[in-house]
Simulated assay, not measured.
Amino acid sequence: MTDAHQEEVLGRIAKGLVYTESEAAFLAPRRRAEQIFEYNRTPPGQEDRRRSLLVEILGSVGERTVLLPPFHAGFGSNVHIGDDFFGNVNLTFVDDVDIHIGDGVMIAPSVTLTTTGHPVHPSRRADFGRFSEPIVIEDKVWIGSNVVVLPGVRVGYGSVIGAGSVVSRTIPPMTVALGAPCRVVRPITDEDLTTRGAL
Rank of each mutant, 00 (worst) to 15 (best):
R125A: 04
T92M: 11
V167P: 05
S132H: 09
V155A: 08
T112G: 05
L58I: 04
R64C: 02
R51N: 03
L91P: 08
N88K: 02
Y39L: 15
G129P: 07
Q46I: 00
S110W: 05
D103V: 03
E138C: 12
S77A: 12
T42L: 04
P43D: 07
A73K: 01
F85R: 09
D96Y: 11
I171K: 03
P173G: 11
N146F: 04
T112Q: 13
P43G: 06
T65I: 13
T175C: 13
P172R: 09
S165E: 09
R130G: 10
H80T: 06
L113N: 07
N146M: 11
D103W: 00
G144A: 09
G117S: 15
N40D: 08
V111E: 05
N88M: 03
H118D: 13
T115E: 09
V176F: 14
P122K: 12
W142T: 08
R64S: 12
R125E: 04
S145Q: 13
I36S: 00
K140P: 01
G152H: 03
I143H: 06
H121I: 11
R125N: 07
T116Q: 14
N40P: 07
A73V: 11
D98A: 15
T112Y: 07
I107M: 14
R64K: 13
N78W: 05
H72P: 02
R41H: 15
V79L: 11
E63D: 14
G158H: 02
